[in-house]
């Protein structure tokens, strides 16, 4: 398997009125071709910022990026704006929770997909239109010949999401970043979209970074999972290992706190406390203030991400966690 994307010590900070917010703080990550990586963690932990950094879409006014974003060995952070724009859409694409952030309400769905195809593939207008109709069919929009001339607001939420996916995939990107692609949708529509993404992945071999707060979606879709907490990756493992043998206390708490259809408990365990303020991150382990297994040493220095089993990494001094059991 060859590595498609590699993040090395990726760090993003924002200048704000409250000082510098270190939103992403030293991420190392690699993704092989055709694989799906689930990126999870609670609100504000830096999932979207990480993906915007990969896409080169952070607001230039107040953001600062450090580290490397290697795509097929080339560091995207060193590329000029034009080169990056050409790669975006053609080789890397992104879809969002709210389709209207990438669909322009003033143009028909077709115009937007055709524009993307023409820009990156140099097809004639007629060929690009045929290809756009083909894409809409692929994402299972019925009567695509008619729908292609609709404006986005005429489509239902599920259909808009499909149109956005069609646009993102029109040029056959090698990497697709999907940021909460189904969070705003109903479960039956979500099931359709996930099914669609599975099919596309199988047919095209696109690698996917799937950002979601829904661990059910991760379990269904991902090959590997990275759990983020306060700007850092705290655990990374193949999906089965992560759910069966979590090795970071935050992951243990997270898995415990989800209400499940296949279980009924009297009380749902919760993770007390709240995430640290990222303009003043604490010394040592970021989770220490909420961790029930904390020791004095945890607060002294940031623990490194260490491998506890093949392909299974955790940022916890106390791992393997079997040793914290009474």
């Amino acid at each position: 398997m060859s590595v498609l994307l590699e993040l090395r010590q990726l760090a993003v900070s924002f200048a704000t009125d409250d000082g510098t917010v270190r939103a992403v703080d030293g991420i190392d990550l690699s993704l092989e071709r055709g694989r799906t990586l689930g990126l999870v963690g609670e609100s504000g932990c830096g999932k979207s910022v990480t993906s915007l950094a990969v896409m080169g879409l952070l607001p230039p006014e107040n953001s600062m990026v450090k580290g490397e974003v290697r795509f097929e060995g080339r560091d995207l952070l060193t590329l000029g704006a034009d080169t990056l724009r050409d790669m975006r859409g053609a080789r890397l694409a992104m879809i969002f929770q709210e389709p209207m952030t990438s669909l322009n309400p003033a143009y028909t769905v077709g115009d937007q997909i055709i524009e993307a195809i023409q820009r990156h593939q140099g097809l004639s207008a007629a060929d690009a239109r045929a290809r756009a109709i083909e894409m809409l069919r692929t994402v299972r929009i019925s009567s695509p010949e008619k729908r292609i001339d609709d404006y986005p607001h005429k489509l239902s939420g599920g259909m808009r999401q499909r149109a956005m996916i069609a646009m993102a995939l029109a040029c056959g990107p090698e990497l697709l970043i999907a940021d909460e692609p189904t969070t705003a949708l109903d479960v039956t529509i979500q099931a359709q979209i996930l099914d669609l993404m599975r099919g596309l992945r199988r047919d095209t071999g696109t690698a996917i970074i799937l950002i979601t707060h829904d661990l059910g979606v991760v379990a269904e879709m991902a090959d590997d999972v990275a759990v983020m907490y306060a700007g850092q990756i705290v655990e990374r493992a193949p999906v089965r290992a992560l759910f069966a043998r979590p090795e970071h206390p935050y992951t243990v708490g997270l898995l415990g706190s989800i209400p499940r259809l296949d279980e009924k408990r009297e009380r749902l365990p919760s993770i007390e406390g709240r995430v640290p303020d990222m303009s003043r991150p604490p010394d040592g382990c970021r989770f220490a203030a909420r961790c029930p297994f904390v020791e004095l040493a945890c607060r002294a220095e940031t623990p490194p991400l260490v491998e506890v089993a093949p392909g299974h990494l955790t940022r916890c001094r106390r791992a393997p966690l079997a040793q914290v059991l009474p």
Binding site: S156, G158, M159, D186, V187, T188, I189, Q190, A191, Q192, L194, D195, D214, L215, G216, V217, V218, A219, E220, A222, V239, R240, F243, A244, L255, I258, R260, L261, D262
Partner: peptide, 25 residues
């Protein structure tokens, strides 16, 4: 039944019956 079947389970080993509802509401 369709609603229950559509909820993703946080268990990568679960084998699910998948009857997808077609179409929109």
């Amino acid at each position: 039944r369709a609603l229950l079947a559509a909820v993703p389970l946080p268990d990568p080993t679960a084998a699910r019956e998948r009857t997808l509802l077609e179409g929109d509401i």
